[in-house]
């Protein structure tokens, strides 16, 4: 049963990550979103947080390319893809223990661990930024101070996303992956 579900999940994952049609991606987005919304009403808070982080990541990674080539279709396509994948994975994880299932495939565990630790790492840095602001603020920060803070965080993640993105791509290549 689990294996069958996993097969289905894999199929959809591959399918979604090869989709380039914006309309189709958008349609899928709404379908998945409504299904999840119906399924996960009790735990929506965590869902939206993850949703937001995933969206931000994706944008940070793809925007530089878009700006460079001045075509935003690419960013939008990547955003939809990533969000669809996120929702698919969430649905799947909520029914099946992913780690134990993947123990048979090194490559997949590797990818899973990379992406999980990646998001985890970023989340912690973000938390640290917030804590540092709290620690250093004697009064409630003023608007200008908050703006500076937000600007810096965006800058920091932007740099990091670029740097890490490059590094992960190189690591994957050296291990024999090729991206399209």
């Amino acid at each position: 049963m689990n294996k069958a579900l996993f097969g289905l999940y894999l199929f959809f994952t591959v399918y979604v990550s090869s989709l380039r049609e914006l309309n189709l991606l958008l349609l899928l987005f709404f379908v998945l979103f409504s299904v999840l919304f119906a399924l996960k009403r009790r735990r929506l808070k965590g869902f939206f947080k993850g949703f937001l982080y995933t969206a931000l990541f994706s944008l940070m990674l793809s925007l530089p390319y878009s700006l460079w080539s001045s075509s935003f279709d690419y960013s939008i396509m990547m955003l939809l893809r990533v969000l669809n994948l996120y929702m698919l994975t969430l649905m799947f994880i909520s029914t099946v223990n992913l780690y134990s299932l993947l123990s048979f495939s090194k490559t997949l565990s590797f990818l899973l661990v990379i992406s999980v630790s990646f998001t985890l790492a970023y989340r912690r840095v973000f938390e640290n930024f917030q804590q540092a602001l709290r620690s250093r603020s004697i009064e409630k920060p003023k608007r200008q101070e908050l703006l500076n803070f937000l600007r810096r965080i965006m800058g920091y993640f932007f740099e990091r996303a670029l740097r890490d993105g490059q590094e992960v791509t190189m690591a994957m290549k050296s291990r024999g992956f090729d991206h399209d």
Binding site: V125, N128, F129, Q131, A132, L133, S135, R136, S137, I138, E139, P141, E145, N148, F149, R151, R152, I153, Y156
Partner: peptide, 27 residues
């Protein structure tokens, strides 16, 4: 006061001067 392990998370002002003046101005 806490010096974070990763000092980067503590710095968010436009210049080094503003950074050092941050808390003093708040006070």
């Amino acid at each position: 006061a806490l010096l974070f392990q990763n000092p980067e998370v503590m710095l968010f002002n436009p210049t080094v001067y503003d950074e050092m003046a941050f808390s003093l101005r708040q006070l």
